[in-house]
Every structure is written in structure tokens, then in C-alpha cells.
């Protein structure tokens, strides 16, 4: 089983909703409040530095994009700056994430958990390991990760970003985005010409209905098909639920590749 921790720089954006374990028996599913981990001083400082670096890169990016006249040049610039940002992110956050990874693994092992997910997606039950992880992170001693991997879990995960790169999904999403951008532009022009609020309301209603209809006809069938395939693959792996990789903190079964193969 592939151990996995996904504590990212975007930790602080997660919604804080306290799950309550009233009446629930202990389970081997744990959850971590990644948003709270993100507020620890060491993460705040690193994120601040990353924000400053990003602001600088943004300025350089805007200048570089103005000098890039062909589409190839623009793609090269985008890729170059993404790479530079990732390098900076790695340099600043990698040591912190490494330590957090070890802390989560250690607590998971000591509590015999099979999987740890982000607190945001658990609204009842589960074991909150946030405080134990914080205590370990704040202690000066080095954290030794456990040698054993967690027990097989009934929770699987997929990387939806990776799935969205499958040609038929990517093409459908890109076409929809392009169409919506054009519709937005023409609707903006209509709004600017509208004489009163009633006219504006009507334009808005038509816009929303058109987008909703197109979503239902073009995207929803693909979304349904993908969900159905994920469900089928999950059943084959004897899983109960599949969550997004972004919500998975530790453990769990990665079925992304199998889903990709099934969708091709």
C-alpha cells in the first residue's frame, strides 16, 4: 500500500467544521485539521515567504508574458514560471512537510488507524489526531516514522486532476471553458447596453439557464460516467468510498491508474 500524505501550502484555506464523535464507536479512520496545522508558526512563516516570492514571480511573469508573442512562447513562459514557483515551494515547505509526514505516520501507527483524511470531509465520527500531531511537531526531538505501513483501508482515493487530463475529459472541459468565456463576453456586452434592471435581470437569467443547460448536456454525462467507473473500480478493490486525493492525508488505496485505464 502506498503511504501518502497531502499537506499542501493551501492548508489554510480548508473550512473548519468540528466533527463530533458523540455516540460513535472508535473507528480506524482518522482525520487531521490541516487548516490548524497550517496556522503553526513555522508554516505561517514559510507561507509568508512563499507569498512574497510569488508576488515577485507574478511581476516577472507579467513582463515575460508581454514579451511572448506566439502561443508556444507563452506556454514556455507559463511552464517556466510554474517550475520556478514549485522549486521555491519545495525549498521552503519540503522540510516542514517531511516532518509533518513523519508525525502523522507516527500517530497513525500508534492509534492503529488505516487511513487519515482531512477534517473538512468528515462530519460525524472518526478519530481526531490533530492535537497529537501538533504536539509531536512542536516537540524539539526528531520524529521517527514507523517502519510498518497502515493496514488496508476501506477508503480509496483518486487524483481528479490527473483524471481530468484524460483526452476526452480534457477536451470536453476545455471546450466548455472556451464556450463559457465567449458567452460571458457577449453577455457582458449585452449587460452594458441594457437600459434598466429588468433587462439586466432577464439577460442574467438567460445566461445562467444557457450555462446550466450546456453543463447538463455536455459535462454531466461524462461526470456520471466517470463516477460510475470509479464506483466499479472501487468495488473491485473492496472499498467503501472513494475521496479526492486532495482530501487524503495518509494511507488509503490509490485507484487513479485503474480508473484511468477503465476510462480510456
Amino acid at each position: 500500500m502506498k503511504n501518502r500524505i497531502a499537506i499542501t501550502a493551501a492548508l489554510m484555506l480548508a473550512v473548519a467544521l468540528p466533527p463530533v464523535a458523540l455516540g460513535a464507536d472508535l473507528t480506524d479512520i482518522g482525520y487531521l485539521d490541516q487548516a490548524r496545522i497550517g496556522t503553526l508558526p513555522q508554516f505561517v512563516a514559510a507561507n509568508r515567504q512563499l507569498g512574497q516570492a510569488k508576488a515577485q514571480l507574478d511581476k516577472q511573469f507579467a513582463t515575460a508574458m508581454r514579451g511572448a508573442h506566439s502561443q508556444e512562447d507563452q506556454q514556455r513562459v507559463v511552464s517556466d514560471f510554474q517550475q520556478r514557483f514549485l522549486q521555491k515551494q519545495r525549498a521552503l515547505l519540503a522540510p516542514l512537510l517531511e516532518r509533518a509526514r513523519a508525525a502523522v505516520a507516527s500517530v497513525t501507527s500508534s492509534k492503529n488507524l488505516s487511513v487519515v483524511v482531512d477534517k473538512r470531509i468528515v462530519i460525524y465520527g472518526g478519530q481526531d489526531i490533530t492535537q497529537e500531531v501538533i504536539d509531536l511537531l512542536q516537540s524539539p526531538a526528531p520524529i521517527v516514522p514507523p517502519v510498518n505501513t497502515p493496514a488496508p483501508s476501506e477508503i480509496g482515493f483518486v487524483d481528479q486532476n490527473q483524471l481530468n487530463q484524460i483526452p476526452k475529459l480534457k477536451s470536453a472541459n476545455d471546450d466548455f471553458d472556451k464556450w463559457q468565456a465567449q458567452l460571458q463576453q457577449s453577455t457582458q456586452a449585452q449587460m452594458a447596453k441594457a437600459k434598466n434592471d429588468d433587462e439586466r435581470r432577464q439577460i442574467l437569467k438567460t445566461y445562467q439557464q444557457t450555462v446550466s443547460d450546456r453543463e447538463k448536456s455536455e459535462l454531466q454525462p461524462l461526470v456520471d460516467q466517470t463516477k460510475s467507473v470509479i464506483g466499479d473500480v472501487a468495488r473491485k478493490h473492496n472499498l467503501i468510498l472513494v475521496v479526492d486525493s486532495g482530501d487524503l492525508v495518509y494511507g488509503g488505496s490509490d485507484i487513479t491508474q485503474d480508473v484511468q485505464n477503465a476510462l480510456k
Partner: peptide, 30 residues
């Protein structure tokens, strides 16, 4: 969402569940 969470607690407890998720990509059971 906080209200939904409060309502979920009583429903989940009555059904004898140990853990309840939201924002699941796809269910295969549960």
C-alpha cells in the same frame, strides 16, 4: 453546513454509523 452537520449527527447515531463523510467522489458502498 454547520446546521447540516448537527442534523447528520442524530441521523448517523440512530443508524449506528461510526463515521460520515461529505464531498465523496464516488461511493462503492456505505
Amino acid at each position: 453546513v454547520a446546521q447540516v452537520q448537527r442534523e447528520t449527527q442524530s441521523v448517523a447515531a440512530a443508524r449506528g454509523l461510526k463515521v460520515v463523510f461529505i464531498d465523496v467522489v464516488a461511493p462503492a458502498g456505505g
